[in-house]
Design a protein around this nucleic acid. Structure first.
Lengths: 239, 239
DNA sequence: CTCAATTTGTTCGTATGTATG
DNA sequence: GCATACATACGAACAAATTGA
């Protein structure tokens, strides 16, 4: 009696997932907008609660929907949390060469700042530069936890003036993955004169010298790169 | 008998998800390695079938595990498929300014090639350059579908010699998102002399001129940028 | 504050579809 | 064709969280 017109090729929960996405798009919902309850979705889509829930969990993992226990289901924030979780796990799994992912991550993080040198410099204004300088200074006096927070904020503010939301979120995401993976692989933070390395970037930006800016960015990542390479080499010897 | 020491803060399926990830890491499994069956996981983790299945669906969405109907559950390929699906959905949802995501995507795609100009040039060898030339040529004669395939392959091969798996996968991912979102927003491909624009990149690489390479990359994305900007402007007028 | 209503979380039992030998 | 092992799907019941009367 149940409408059984779905062909065998596709899985039901995939269909349900697609239809929930289409529901959001067709109704032009925004992040935070409420979705129908699970039971309403069951009735509307002609699927059991289990299938609807599994579909919702898939969308939840991608931050396309967000589920609040006892409250309801809502359109998600569309963040890059799935990228962070996936890359973090990959970084922890990499066989035989755990540090390859870290090494590649440093390359990409450097690219985002070095490759946008000219655009960043022309977009940075005075107050912004002062904030960056303050953050760099705080890396000398603050305790470890605060220093890490300041570092994350520094690199986020560095690319924010570009006005590219995707670049900003990717910058945060890669920073998050790196700081999540590195310690779990036994890699301690470099902390090699962070104040000077960060201030050099700000100084070059203030001078409007994009070549010096790029050099300062490279210099900033150099000690990190060295530490990763050393750990990588030590591991390759062990194997 | 069941360890019920989980405090209220965490959801059971989250715990199950974490423990499955730890199982993979602790046993040093590789992509493709088989995981215990659902029933075995239920017994091992003291959770019901539904909770285990919902946890697995979460990990499946991140390509951390891969489920084959009637076959079993395996460690996933750890691809960036979740990033592609998430960004694609974001591109289709963006309120009032659908083309902002496309515009940002072009920036990032250009950055990956322009910002790595020097490294790409020094890593490219003769045969590689010949392949790129052939791909560029095929964009003139081939039908639409083949032309798209050639374009994807061209940009993939351009960054591949860097030897950075993450860069290669991100390049593919951003290309996939762009080509998935653009047509659904009514944006037709630019196709403005693709042979010349791509050959110019290869030519600059062959000459070992990283400045010319960067310029050629910018020129390549210029018509795409123009089309996106035009569509964006037209939309802002409508609203 | 307590109670009731709503909604998601979790469990269990059963039946079906799929792949392998 | 058959048997086995596995994931898929359904439905009913109860638990836990949140909100508001």
């Amino acid at each position: 009696m149940v409408s059984n017109e779905r062909v065998g090729r596709s899985l039901l929960r995939q269909e349900v997932s697609e239809r929930i996405k289409r529901y959001i798009l067709d109704n032009r919902l925004r992040p935070g907008s409420p979705l129908p309850t699970e039971n309403e979705l069951c009735a509307a889509l002609g699927a059991s609660r289990s299938s609807v829930r599994e579909a919702i969990k898939t969308l939840d993992a991608l931050d396309i929907v967000e589920v609040r226990h006892g409250h309801g289901t809502y359109v998600g924030g569309l963040s890059l949390s799935a990228l962070v979780e996936g890359l973090t796990f990959r970084g922890l799994l990499s066989p035989n060469d755990d540090f390859a992912v870290l090494s590649e991550l440093v390359d990409v993080r450097e690219l985002f700042e070095r490759g946008n040198a000219a655009a960043i410099i022309s977009a940075l204004d005075g107050p912004h530069l002062d904030t960056l300088d303050d953050l760099a200074s705080s890396m000398g006096t603050a305790v470890d936890a605060d220093r890490v927070v300041a570092d994350r904020r520094f690199h986020a503010l560095l690319v924010n003036p570009l006005g590219n939301e995707l670049v900003s979120q990717l910058t945060d995401a890669f920073w998050d993955v790196f700081t999540a993976v590195a310690p779990r692989l036994g890699l301690t933070p470099s902390d090699q004169d962070p104040v000077r390395l960060h201030k050099a970037i700000v100084h070059a930006a203030r001078a409007g010298d994009s070549l010096a800016f790029a050099d300062a960015v490279v210099a900033h990542y150099a000690p990190i790169r060295t530490r990763v390479a050393a750990a990588r080499h030590a591991q390759s010897i062990r194997n």
